[in-house]
């Protein structure tokens, strides 16, 4: 077993031991708990899902993750360790395969320094601050089991480097994000692109219920077989009330010579029938020219939350691509 994996498992076990010894008694599900009187909080999440296509069924324990964070108003940290696709059982007409990934990934590890009321500097591995979905991509916090294609084909989901955020607040809020990575990433295996460079900028406008974002940037795919420089741009908007949310993201990606993804986007509406019952509809489309693949599809879903941090979800997808129609169920919990 590699030494880094041993260290990560030791960290995981230490946090679990601390949490059982020093946790406060008034724990609320979905809010984590404080370790004693220290400015240290521990939480986690879990998800499992089932997918049924015409020719294939898949059962999966997808995420088992531990969160640890804390600090004060000036300095704080975040650590997220995760088993991804811990158990995957795939059955088709002729065979059954079982895959287990027991590597403990570092999903996030960063230090935040609040320089003053306007500037925050983040150093480490963090969710690239692009769009909305990428910042809330874990199963229990989204309204569908599936992720929109636009959230994982256009830009690197994680960046290892620096993120400087400037926020101006008066009656509305404006913020600017600068993203920079130059060099090897922390746990590149846990990212949609293996990257060794990423530079980006994002602008966010927010008032009470409405938020919109624009992002653009450049990254270098460092895979040996697939080395290339890629440029992306994404616009996103969200309108949120007590009873419904409408959210959309649309982006594009190109290399120096050609368009690699002409467009990838979605519009999603979630309606809260009651606090426990949520209906979701999503329209999606993409044109990935690099692998010559395009699709347009509709998703209808229903989520039942007996408590907010527990989600039972179902969805059905109708695709224009042959054999992509599918049914998905999932159970996820935030601790």
């Amino acid at each position: 077993m590699p030494i880094t994996t041993r260290v990560r498992r030791a960290v995981l076990l230490s946090f679990l031991a601390c949490s059982s010894l020093y946790s406060e008694s008034n724990y609320t599900l979905g809010e984590g708990f404080q370790v004693g009187e220290l400015p240290l909080y521990i939480g986690g999440y879990f998800s499992m899902d089932y997918r049924n296509r015409d020719d294939e069924q898949r059962y999966r324990i997808d995420d088992i993750a531990l969160l640890s964070y804390g600090g004060n108003n000036t300095l704080s940290y975040m650590l997220e360790l995760e088993y991804k696709e811990f158990y995957v059982n795939t059955q088709n007409r002729s065979s059954t395969t079982v895959d287990r990934d027991t590597h403990l990934y570092v999903e996030r590890l960063h230090l935040d320094y609040n320089i003053n009321e306007h500037y925050r500097l983040r150093i480490g591995k963090y969710n690239s601050p692009i769009g909305f979905w990428n910042l809330m991509h874990i199963n229990v916090l989204r309204e569908t089991t599936s992720n929109p294609v636009a959230s994982y084909i256009l830009y690197p989901m994680f960046t290892s480097g620096a993120n400087l955020t400037y926020t101006s607040f008066h009656t509305t809020s404006w913020s600017i994000d600068l993203i920079a990575q130059r060099g090897k990433a922390i746990d590149n295996g846990y990212n949609n692109y293996a990257i060794n460079r990423h530079f980006g900028v994002g602008v966010t406008y927010e008032n009470e219920d409405f938020t919109c974002k624009m992002s653009g940037g450049y990254f270098r795919n460092s895979e040996r077989q697939n080395k290339r420089d890629l440029y992306y741009a994404l616009v996103a908007a969200k309108y949120e009330t007590d009873t419904y949310t409408i959210q959309t993201e649309l982006g594009s990606q190109r290399s120096k010579k050609t368009t690699t993804t002409a467009y990838a986007g979605y519009v999603q509406a979630a309606y809260y029938f009651t606090e426990r019952h949520v209906g979701v509809a999503r329209l999606e489309g993409y044109d990935n020219r690099y692998v010559d693949e395009s699709d347009r599809f509709v998703i209808l879903g229903y989520t039942y939350r007996p408590l907010y941090p527990v989600a039972l979800k179902s969805e059905y997808q109708w695709h224009t691509r042959y054999r992509e129609n599918q049914l998905l169920f999932s159970l996820s919990v935030l601790f």
Binding site: E31, G43, L67, Y69, Y272, E275
Partner: peptide, 15 residues
């Protein structure tokens, strides 16, 4: 109350 509950669950994930 429900919207705030969902808001603080998301914030817990963000630290």
């Amino acid at each position: 109350f429900q919207r705030l509950k969902s808001y603080w669950s998301r914030q817990h994930y963000l630290g």
